[in-house]
Design a protein around this nucleic acid. Structure first.
Lengths: 184, 184
DNA sequence: AGGTTAAGTCAACATGGCTGACATTTCGCA
DNA sequence: TGCGAAATGTCAGCCATGTTGACTTAACCT
């Protein structure tokens, strides 16, 4: 499909390649969030709620401070979102055992169902692409994105993977992914 | 660093891999936009302005409709942003030759300088990562993101690459990338 | 006992999306 | 030639989600 005279101007080519990377990020991120956004809109929630739900599902029992550290938003912003999720029964709070000041956040059954529904669309997207692109492409994809992100964040992403499976939180062990077939 | 008992539960592993993809997207996109955001904040502009400037720089002479098709926002939203960019002298409009209804958008010198400054931070990030990760990783990165994005958008991204270099718009041929060295 | 930390709250504001309604100019065709 | 459609612009208002700043409460720790 793409056949370029690679000899012409190496500087230009480099520029073009870098811009391609930039644009792929823009388009892909938009696409990546579009399906969850659509689902959320129907129940009067937004992307901010998805993010909170996602990470509470990912790290059950997470404290408010930890969640703030992941999301990197102010506690006032989070509070609004979290308040709505509590009110509508997607999230529950429990006082910390060790430290009673902490509020440990977990998903309710409804929260879990919603998280699955939302994340599933993204999971399926990745599953399909991973399969089509192959293991090596996936490794490359991960290497590049990992190179872009903040080392502190990267460490957090890696952390879970390095925990032996038995210690993993319940929530991450759940049901197999079921994807809809594409329409013909 | 990461050593997992891969034999244990293939289903879980798959789940974990897919979640990693999702999280990398989240963290990477945030990091990817953070530097331009910082620069823009200093001159009282936002990410929306960056996007407009970026694509006007990318496709000089682009019409308003075409820009709308790329950004996928309403004309009212774009109009606000574009108005500010015109007012502050970053963008210029010219009537279309063939179709006088069209407004062909181009960057002014100031606009170009700003576009370079903004995009350069992202370009440098990618340049460094590409170099560290290697050509194969880059190919994988692109394959995965290309698989995620909307085919219509993908076509647009690919289009420029397939045009022989001589026909490329001026703006994309410009200066070589200069990146700051990291602080020790 | 007293400073620090975790969490929450109130108020005000900015950005950047959105909808709906409507005006102007130009184009293209029957 | 005239009329509908298209490209653009504009007004008004709404909503989601981020921000800052000031302050409270409860629990922790030394």
């Amino acid at each position: 499909m793409v056949a370029l005279k690679t000899s012409a101007n190496p500087l230009f080519l480099r520029e073009e390649e870098l811009r391609r990377g930039i644009e792929l990020m823009f388009y892909a991120y938009r696409e990546f969030t579009s399906e969850p956004d659509r689902i959320l809109a129907k129940i009067d929630l937004g992307r901010a709620h998805h993010r909170a739900i996602y990470f509470i599902g990912r790290y059950p029992g997470i404290t408010v401070s930890e969640l703030l550290a992941i999301l990197k938003i102010t506690k006032q912003s989070l509070s609004r979102v979290l308040g709505q999720l509590l009110e509508r029964g997607y999230v529950e709070q429990a006082k910390g055992e060790r430290d009673q000041r902490q509020r440990l956040l977990t998903l309710t059954e409804a929260g879990h169902a919603l998280e699955q529904q939302l994340t599933n669309t993204q999971r399926c997207r990745f599953a399909a692409v991973y399969k089509a692109a192959g293991a090596e492409a996936v490794a490359g994809f991960r290497a590049v994105l990992a190179g872009i992100i903040d080392p502190t964040d990267l460490e957090r992403v890696e952390r879970l993977l390095s925990i032996p499976q038995e210690e993993k939180p319940e929530a991450t062990k759940r049901l197999p992914v079921k994807c809809m077939k594409k329409e013909a």
